Simulated assay, not measured.
Amino acid sequence: MTAEAQLPVLDEHRITVPADAETAWRALTETVAGMSAGRLATAYAWAVRCADWKASGSGPLVVGATIPGFRVLAADPPERLVLAGRHLFSEYQLAFRLESRGGETLIRAESRAVFPGLTGGGYRLLVVGTGGHVIGMRMLLRKIARRA
Rank of each mutant, 00 (worst) to 15 (best):
R112V: 11
S111F: 06
R124C: 02
G132Q: 14
G132H: 14
T105K: 03
E110G: 11
L106V: 14
G122M: 13
F115W: 15
F115C: 06
L106Q: 09
G103Q: 14
G132Y: 05
V114C: 07
A113E: 05
G122N: 04
R108V: 15
F115N: 04
R101D: 14
V128H: 07
A109R: 05
G117A: 08
V114L: 09
G132M: 12
Y123A: 00
V114A: 10
G122F: 07
T105D: 03
R101P: 02
G131D: 05
R108E: 10
V128E: 06
G129H: 12
E110D: 10
T119F: 13
G131M: 08
A113Y: 02
P116A: 04
S111D: 14
V128D: 03
E104W: 06
L126H: 13
V127F: 01
L126W: 13
R124A: 05
G132P: 02
P116D: 03
R101Y: 07
R124D: 00
I107W: 00
R112I: 08
G122I: 08
F115Y: 15
T119L: 15
L106S: 07
G122V: 09
G117S: 08
G121H: 11
G129P: 02
F115P: 01
V128R: 03
G103L: 12
G117F: 07
R108N: 12
A113V: 15
S111N: 15
A113R: 05
T130A: 11
G129W: 00
T130W: 04
G117T: 05
I107P: 00
G102P: 01
P116Y: 05
R112T: 10
L106F: 04
P116C: 04
V114Q: 11
I107F: 00
T105N: 03
G102K: 09
A109T: 02
L126F: 15
T105R: 00
L118C: 10
V114T: 15
Y123K: 01
L125C: 10
I107A: 01
E110F: 08
T105A: 05
R108H: 09
E110V: 14
R124L: 01
G102N: 02
G131E: 05
G102Q: 01
R101G: 09
Y123S: 01
V127Q: 06
G122L: 14
R108P: 03
L125Y: 09
G121M: 15
G129V: 02
Y123R: 00
T105W: 01
L118K: 11
G117K: 08
G120Y: 03
R124V: 00
G120T: 07
S111Y: 04
L126K: 13
I107L: 11
R124F: 02
R108M: 08
T130I: 07
R112A: 14
G102W: 05
R108Q: 10
Y123C: 00
A113Q: 08
R101K: 12
L126Q: 13
R101I: 09
L125W: 11
G103M: 09
A113K: 04
T130N: 04
L118W: 14
V128K: 02
G132R: 12
Y123L: 01
T130K: 10
G103F: 11
T105S: 08
V127T: 12
G122K: 06
G102A: 07
P116M: 02
L125N: 06
L118T: 13
E104D: 13
G122S: 05
I107H: 00
A109E: 10
G121W: 12
G121P: 00
G102D: 02
L118F: 14
G120W: 03
E110Y: 11
G122R: 07
I107N: 01
G121Y: 04
V114M: 07
G102I: 04
